[in-house]
Write a protein that binds this DNA or RNA. Structure first.
Lengths: 247, 247
DNA sequence: TATCATTTATGACTAAAGTCAGTTTATGGG
DNA sequence: CCCATAAACTGACTTTAGTCATAAATGATA
């Protein structure tokens, strides 16, 4: 998870069915046959059933049997579409997460200070997670380690969108001269997200009131923006050095 | 998880046995009776057995039956000491983690640049996780959401040590004038750790070669140290503001 | 349409985490 | 020393995720 941009291809290929040899590649707009349509429709039913049950009963309290029953399929069938219950959880919520983030980015206040822009985006995500804390906890736990290539790909897509969005904001502020141009926007984005993410985990863990969490998050982001180094301090140069101090 | 310093007490009290009423409070150094000693010894056996099996067979591949058998206790007994298999995982590794961190802090190069000091500490943690990537993955996954008050307390202790250690380093550099004194060292520590932690997760997820991971981590930390803001930019003031720009 | 290969679906079954009613062991007082 | 009570232990049992041999459905071909 939280992969950096340059990633090598996954080993786990998604094996395509072999049947339709001649049809597909002849350039004709092949609309999916009954088989494919059935599959898609079934997948939708599964995700829908799971989404509903997770939302009402909670993740741990929902059994795969219930989901299968609600989706009107056999127990075994469920596991043709999701490798595990946890896999299903990520399947269900990846889209919502992405949409929430995209919606947040779309409404970023244009001329505002960077920290305000960030807090706007993170604030919308926080509001999303606040709607069902228990579920978010379960989701973030699963996201930590993903087992199937498909879900890893999903997460990569999500993270690219997020990092890309934040990086764009950083780059924009670099252009206006607010920000120094030395910092790689993508890495900066990953830093800022990391700060948000661990704060979020802490909050979801309970114990901290939301207002305090928000206030501290803001303070932390400000620190990352301002930096720790005293102004005018000679940078420790880009490369490796052990203990020596030049000048 | 990753709780900030000021936390309210947990709701889940650890209920103490009621039997020894008069004995304990009379000020005399009460050495533990057979009951307590048995319990401690059994706990040690359980943790030892689990540690060994997790290390050799892996977390998922180890059954609670095996652990119980190796610890020479009944299946049910295991769950008197750990609420779940996952709970046991955290029980087993919290000490190692803390010790690794403390050992790393003890050997921090004294006069070195801050980024080098940080990389020393994080490098030792990374080396620790590298010894068993699979296990670390499982561990970090569980750490994300902790169910029992005991484990939450354990994690709080761990995080306090880590944040405290890093914060001390930050404070030291503030004292020498390397770092501006405006930043709260504790919040800065949390930022820096967050950057490390998410990078670590990315690396443990596979796909990224260790060298690249280390290089990027260093670059990210440098960004957090230097900050994003252009030197001499008027700070957006500490308080809330929407879109207005002063000056 | 009939045939055959391939994909998809199914639910009885397996395995393993976790529970609990009943048993054993420690403790402190008489 | 013996009893009463609380604590600790136990393994048969329950529950549920996930498997797999078998069956049904689909699509290509003639």
């Amino acid at each position: 998870m939280f992969c950096t941009d340059a990633m090598t291809r996954e080993g786990g290929e998604v094996v395509e069915p072999k049947l339709k040899k001649a049809r597909a590649n002849s350039g004709i707009s092949t609309r999916p046959g009954r088989r494919e349509r059935n599959k898609q429709e079934k997948r939708a039913r599964i995700v829908g059933a799971a989404r509903e049950l997770f939302g009402t009963k909670g993740f741990a309290e929902t059994t795969t049997q219930e989901i299968a029953e609600k989706a009107d399929i056999g127990t075994g069938t469920l596991f043709l579409y999701a490798k595990s219950k946890e896999d299903l959880l990520v399947m269900v919520f990846k889209d919502e997460m992405l949409e929430t983030f995209l919606a947040a980015f779309k409404k970023v206040p244009a001329g505002a200070p960077f920290a305000d822009q960030l807090m706007h985006v993170f604030g919308m995500m926080i509001a999303y997670h606040a709607k069902d804390v228990e579920l978010s906890r379960a989701l973030l736990k699963e996201i930590t380690v993903l087992r199937t290539p498909e879900r890893r790909q999903d997460l990569r897509t999500l993270m690219r969108a997020i990092y890309g969005g934040i990086a764009d904001l950083v780059a924009a502020h670099q252009k206006t001269g607010n920000f120094r141009s030395g910092a790689n926007p993508l890495l900066a984005a990953e830093n800022l997200f990391a700060v948000y993410y661990l704060s979020l985990l802490g909050w979801l863990g309970g114990q901290i009131p939301k207002q305090k969490f928000i206030r501290e998050l803001r303070a932390k982001l400000d620190i990352t923006i301002e930096g720790l180094a005293a102004p005018g301090t000679p940078k420790p140069a880009a490369s490796k050095q052990k203990t020596s101090r030049k000048s």
